[in-house]
Amino acid sequence: MISVMFMEDHNMEFFDYLFEDAAPGDLILVYGPPKVGKSIFCYQFLYSSLVGGEPCLYIVADYGSRQLEQRMMEFNWFLRPYIQNGDVYIIDLLTRLAGVKVEDSGTLKFSSVQNLTDLMVKVGVSTRSLFRKSSKFRAILDSLTVIFAFNPPNLVLRLLKAYKARISEARGIGVVVHTTGTVEPSIENSLMELADLKLCFDGEKIQAESSAGEKFVQYTITDKGVKNIRG
């Protein structure tokens, strides 16, 4: 059954529908080929969460935290105020690698794509703060592609298990983005098994799959982000 809804600016109903079967503590896998809007969907998820008063952790693994802000600005989603008042924690895995000397601050932390031990330390620190701040929060990891490129795949799966345990312990909802075809099928299968809810993007529709069943929405990408179209 597919419900048809109108999209507000932040697509709240759209999300409500897709995430209907997700409970606090769940891990959601957003996956699909490159350039189908997975990251934009994440920005939107992040922004709608912040607007709705739920704090977030955002792990940027494929680009720097600066770029995150800039990319979101293209959709008129301004992150700065939320960074300043501590509603969003960002862990940046690439800026240091680029040779930029940067210091951690309260809500902006730098780690490295190869140092998964350190990444988990920072995830721990951030989720604890979020847990204290709010009974509900979201954590988004965009994406696994670069992490997979620089680590043995089994180690990345181990990281995800620890990550999932951490988020669910703190009663958050975790979103992890994966680009299909970047790892072996067996690893991809293990990834799918870890997820409580899977959202498959193909450029036209998002297919949601969980133990509660399957459903899909058709979507398009506009300057307001990922929007559903009546199907």
Binding site: T117, M120, G124, L159, A162, R166
Partner: peptide, 9 residues
């Protein structure tokens, strides 16, 4: 030997 999440480096 540290559980993931502990700062031990």
């Amino acid at each position: 030997s540290a559980v993931p999440g502990v700062d031990y480096e």
